[in-house]
Design a protein around this nucleic acid. Sequence first.
DNA 1: ATAATTTATGAAACGCGTTTCAATGCAAGA
DNA 2: TCTTGCATTGAAACGCGTTTCATAAATTAT
Lengths: 320, 320
Amino acid sequence: MANIKDIAKMAGVSVTTVSRVINNYPYVSAEKAEAVRLAMKKCNYQRNINAVHLSKGKTYLIGVVVPFSNHPYFGLLIEGIANAALKNNYKLVLIQTNYEKDKEIEALTMLKDKQIDALIVCSRICEWSVMEDYIEYGPIILCEDARGKTVASTFVDHYKSFTAALNYLYQKGHTRIGYCIGRRSGTNSEQRDAAYKDFLEENALSYNSDFIFSGCFNFEDGEKVVAKLIQQKSRPTALLVTSDQVAAGILTCCKEQGIFIPEDLAIMGFDNQPISQVMHITTLEIPLVEVGKKLFHQAMDGENVSHEEIPVKLIERETV
Amino acid sequence: MANIKDIAKMAGVSVTTVSRVINNYPYVSAEKAEAVRLAMKKCNYQRNINAVHLSKGKTYLIGVVVPFSNHPYFGLLIEGIANAALKNNYKLVLIQTNYEKDKEIEALTMLKDKQIDALIVCSRICEWSVMEDYIEYGPIILCEDARGKTVASTFVDHYKSFTAALNYLYQKGHTRIGYCIGRRSGTNSEQRDAAYKDFLEENALSYNSDFIFSGCFNFEDGEKVVAKLIQQKSRPTALLVTSDQVAAGILTCCKEQGIFIPEDLAIMGFDNQPISQVMHITTLEIPLVEVGKKLFHQAMDGENVSHEEIPVKLIERETV
DNA sequence: ATAATTTATGAAACGCGTTTCAATGCAAGA
DNA sequence: TCTTGCATTGAAACGCGTTTCATAAATTAT
């Protein structure tokens, strides 16, 4: 395989000139440029991208950390990031962690290695103190409220939006409100829990641990929630479900069990995924594709540490 | 930032020795190894991965081409690939094409560039003749029946499985059978269409273009299918739906419209995604995570062009 | 005791494109 | 006519780890 030197020799010019032609830099005479192009065509020349990477110290790769890739929430986020990446000639390196710390650290190591130019963490597992050590190696972008921290972030203020949702349900007359969440830990979950507790306190409602269902990620997890629900003698009358998928699963199973929505149980989803529209689920819209796009642009604008809050919108449909 | 030379100088050894220590090669005395390690720690040495890539001519990156990343079908496939990649110290570069040829060619170019060591195409758009030109640059793996072609593949024989599904419905008494599919073109779609036409001919049934619904990818697409369905005066009595998501969407909308499943309309899904279990949808199981794993291993075993057929299993539930 | 291995170690070549810097030629402005 | 400046062009340095090959020393085998 021919390299730039071979082409230079063949075209009777220097490698510098060849490089200039390849990269469309000025100051190359038309004849020489033509000669170079001819030589490249003749040899079916392909420049070695790794040499470019080494030389430039950049890879045009952005790491994206997600716990799962088969979840619509992350799917949409990735979609948004991928679209923006495409437009900017960047590629994504997907790092699926399955919520294992080691995997996340591997991603951070890739940043340190300079194998990726920046790292977007869609859902963080490592403690902040661990992440902090890697900031010096390149931009790290979080998809969680990171105000006050020294990395950029695009986020939903989950305290605020959870509070708004709870108040909405309260206004509708609900006082026995529960919620479904993915994992218990994590910034977002903690914000939500804080909002929940503050809401209870403010309205002099008592805390009931049975009203909190964790491990809710997918449609099928709704089944488990309903199974638990029907065993409870004093059920919640409303459920805040942090994923439309799960909400849809709950809805489907409730129908089967003869639990009427919203009469017996009000359900409020999150994200405004297409499924919520089809199933008429009242939900809190989060423009995930938009979030993904912003995340990418923050990754590009590495030095600038900004924090973008994404507003959510309550979409009233038929499950509350 | 220190490089290998600096470390060598510091430790009083040659760069070769440092390299040996880094890569755990034998033939380094304990003292020198220790000196090297000490120097590396002192400088917080990080080797430049791009130099490694250039030198080795490998990147430990595998490209994965998908049309969308927010679809459970591809999500599971990616999951399978990602898990296997993780175990083998490979990373994935996700290339989302949105079914645009240019994007796929970009992925092929990455292979040519040696930016990725192999390319897995989960859903092909480019004509085979285009792909063929890139085979010489590295392993290309297809997730479609590529027997007879010079690239490896892991696939479901969609002709066979579609035929089996059609016969199953026929045995159940259905003669007015339609099907829902994503795109019309593509190997898989063509195999299915061929199976469909052959089935009709064999059973002396007439072809009705109204019975074929394309553009069915997601849950919400089920809504459109049902909308069309209720406008038809002579409806199919059974529908083969090439995605559980869509099947679930159809099921949900049918319930709303008072169409009883399976009495008025039998529905058969594909993939055996969790949603089909929750909604009791009869389906054809495709072990997508397993497929992903196989795809990865074929990518690893580049020179060996193998074709792995994945058997599917009919899972009887309550929608037929 | 001698030959045959094995262990240790480093110089140098290799992979390859980018970029800086110096130099030459030529044209426009003074 | 002479400077100033832009257009062209290439040599060489740079980014950096891997690997081959030669050499020397230490073992083991014969």
